[in-house]
């Protein structure tokens, strides 16, 4: 296992999220096989609910923006930028990609 491989695609759940631990940070991975980018990664910490739950949020779209909804209080965050659409807050984003069957952190 090389350093930048996080997990395998079979660990992911289609159109939904799972959580990975990357350098001791909790990262929510969303697998959207029908989009161009296919995989999105944002921080798992919900800044409003103050709990590690973002990977368990629902995925959807607002206009053209792909978003994840906080499972606690329903705030919307852009999957691409991490920006919250409702209040002034943002999730960290991570550059991840799928290479063959591997999910990798692009450095």
């Amino acid at each position: 296992m090389t350093n930048n491989v996080i997990c395998q695609t079979r660990d992911l759940v289609e159109n939904s999220g799972v959580c990975a631990l990357i350098n001791n940070e909790q990262v929510a991975l969303f697998y959207l096989p029908n989009t161009e980018q296919k995989i999105f990664a944002v921080g798992n910490w919900d800044p409003f609910g103050k709990a590690n739950v973002m990977s368990r949020g629902l995925i959807g779209s607002i206009g053209d923006e792909l978003v994840v909804f906080s499972p606690l209080y329903k705030q919307r965050f852009s999957l691409a930028t991490g920006q919250c659409l409702d209040e002034d807050a943002a999730l960290p984003t991570y550059n991840v990609a799928i290479e063959n069957d591997d999910v990798v952190l692009v450095s």
Binding site: V13, E14, N15, A51, N52, R56, G57, L58, P71, L72
Partner: peptide, 19 residues
Amino acid sequence: LVPLQDTNDTFMANMQKDG
């Protein structure tokens, strides 16, 4: 169906404030 459900339905339990 999984991607359609709120977290409570996907985990078949009720999420509390601390996750």
